[in-house]
């Protein structure tokens, strides 16, 4: 986890081409729009079957502390397989999802995209920053930002998301809920 540890130099010979960087950007932008439009079934189409989403809850700890801000065994906002994410999203399709009607208005903003080689030959480690802006009802507004680390895989069907970690900055989520994905 590069957020906790000093980053190791990767000695891989591959370098992302301009075309690949462009394709990755377009994938992330399209994905953001699908989330904004709450088209979750289409969003899931961008994932490989082994996709996992991990969004740990950060802890405020001293620098001298042996534990990091983000640790895998702790409570998390998300630590889900693809099928578990689909279960979560299935609730929003119910007409009885009262708190989603009228719907929340979403903008997912993606920036600071870097494409680096990953360990597996057909995979790329993609860093980005994501910011979610939500507005609900009359005047409710929530912001949440985080650093993403995605694994993006080249497949016969094009680029697919194979894994995602999001390191959000809020230790206390400054909202009553978080009703979208990052």
């Amino acid at each position: 986890m590069s957020v906790n540890a000093v980053e190791q130099a990767v000695a891989a010979p591959r370098r992302a081409s301009l075309q690949l960087v462009h394709d990755v950007q377009q994938l992330l932008y399209r994905e953001a729009r699908l989330l904004d439009e709450q088209r979750y079934d289409d969003w899931f189409e961008l994932m490989e079957d082994d996709f996992r989403l991990w969004i740990p809850v950060p802890q405020s700890r001293y620098r001298r502390d042996g534990q990091g801000i983000y640790e895998p065994r702790r409570m998390a906002h998300f630590d889900d397989s693809l099928s578990e994410l689909k279960l979560r999203a299935s609730r929003w399709k119910e007409t009885t999802a009262w708190s989603e009607d009228p719907p929340t208005r979403h903008v997912h903003y993606v920036t600071n995209i870097e494409v680096e080689p990953a360990e597996a030959a057909a995979e790329w480690l993609v860093h980005s920053v994501v910011i979610s802006l939500r507005n609900r009802n009359e005047d409710e507004e929530n912001w949440l930002g985080g650093r993403r680390e995605d694994v993006i895989r080249e497949t016969a069907a094009g680029l697919k998301l194979a894994g995602r970690k999001v390191f959000v900055t809020q230790s206390v989520l400054m909202a009553k809920n978080f009703n979208t994905f990052l």
Binding site: D79, E84, R88, A97, W98, K176, N177, N179
Partner: peptide, 19 residues
């Protein structure tokens, strides 16, 4: 992982309570 999915701010049950 089950509690995260149900009774947390991202959870399927809890997100309705706060509203």
């Amino acid at each position: 992982r089950g509690v995260s999915r149900t009774f947390s701010p991202t959870g399927m049950f809890e997100s309705d309570d706060g509203e």
